[in-house]
């Protein structure tokens, strides 16, 4: 590429220009504007007044926002940690057993990933409804006492939304971990069994170190999915009952477009972005260091 004409030297920039223009105008510029908005008290109609870091302080002091981030933390348990545990057991069991039908299994358990979250939410609303599938099942086995309005009960609404997240993530995590485990040479396990190492020992000494990159990817993807739960909450509970299922992304929407707290909403969006960047960095750093 050296010694080109001036026109030749421009070529790469010409190929880049259209992408960069759209990307700059509709992603980078709005991101910068979000940061700018976040330093203002702005209702979306009148001129905003600068308030310094007050909107960020509110993330820590405003009870509604603090709760929303707390709920996100609970959802991470359901979207990320629980699927990781289930996925590890499933993948370890399946990857070395010569069962037929694994490709079909993979297709089926990955399916939740491609269904629009709004559709997922509509499906689970039917399951959780007062006369829905879950309560019918409980009545059928004589556990009438346990039936309730799962999404309308303060005690169960957040876990009920969380279980949808577990359903959504587990297939993805399992498929990822199975791909990682399939890479481990079987001889390692055979040598370990000869040395008298049981399945638990083999998992810890051989499997886990080998699939660390897959675990990192699984954690990153699912934690981000948990932090970005918007459509699911919007359709299943609308943040209720009360504020028991509000989440940060729902607060962004509600504050900006229902309450007219545009500056605060922008600040929550920026915090969410920083969190996602941070999680990416930390998870990848940890996965790298241990190689």
């Amino acid at each position: 590429m050296r010694g080109r004409s001036p026109r030749g030297r421009l070529t790469p920039y010409l190929f880049l220009a259209p992408a960069l223009a759209v990307y700059g105008a509709f992603l980078l510029y709005p991101l910068a504007r979000a940061v700018q908005f976040s330093f203002y008290d702005y209702d979306g109609l009148t001129v905003g007044t600068p308030v310094g870091l007050a909107n960020y302080a509110a993330v820590l002091t405003d009870e509604g926002l603090r709760d929303a981030f707390g709920h996100a933390l609970v959802l991470i348990g359901f979207f990320s940690l629980l699927p990781l545990l289930i996925g590890l057991v499933l993948a370890a069991l399946l990857v070395r057993s010569r069962v037929r039908g694994l490709p079909l299994f993979r297709t089926v358990v990955f399916l939740p990933q491609v269904i629009a979250m709004v559709v997922v939410a509509v499906a689970w609303r039917r399951i959780y409804a007062p006369d829905g599938t879950l309560n019918q099942l409980l009545r059928a086995v004589g556990l009438d006492g346990l039936t309730r309005t799962w999404l309308g009960d303060y005690a169960t609404a957040l876990p009920a939304v969380g279980v949808i997240g577990t359903w959504y993530s587990t297939g993805l995590v399992t498929v990822l971990l199975m791909a990682g485990m399939a890479r481990v040479p079987p001889e390692l396990y055979e040598a370990a069994s000869l040395d008298g190492a049981g399945p638990a020992r083999q998992l810890r000494a051989i499997t886990l170190p080998a699939i660390r990159p897959e675990i990192a990817v699984a954690l990153t993807l699912t934690i981000i999915a948990a932090l970005k739960t918007f459509d699911l909450v919007y359709v299943t509970t609308g943040g209720g009952p009360g504020t028991s299922t509000t989440v940060p992304s729902y607060e962004v929407y509600r504050r900006a477009f229902e309450l007219g707290e545009v500056g605060a909403a922008a600040a929550v969006g920026v915090v969410l972005t920083v969190l996602i960047f941070g999680i990416n960095l930390v998870v990848n750093r940890v996965a790298d260091r241990q190689r």
Binding site: L27, R96, R98, A179, A182, Y189, L221
Partner: peptide, 22 residues
């Protein structure tokens, strides 16, 4: 790793190939 679009991610893992065990 993906934030903007769900699953816009970046796995270093291999594509899910058929699992072969001993």
């Amino acid at each position: 790793l993906g934030g903007a679009r769900p699953g816009a991610a970046a796995g270093r893992g291999a594509a899910a190939g058929p699992a072969r065990g001993p």
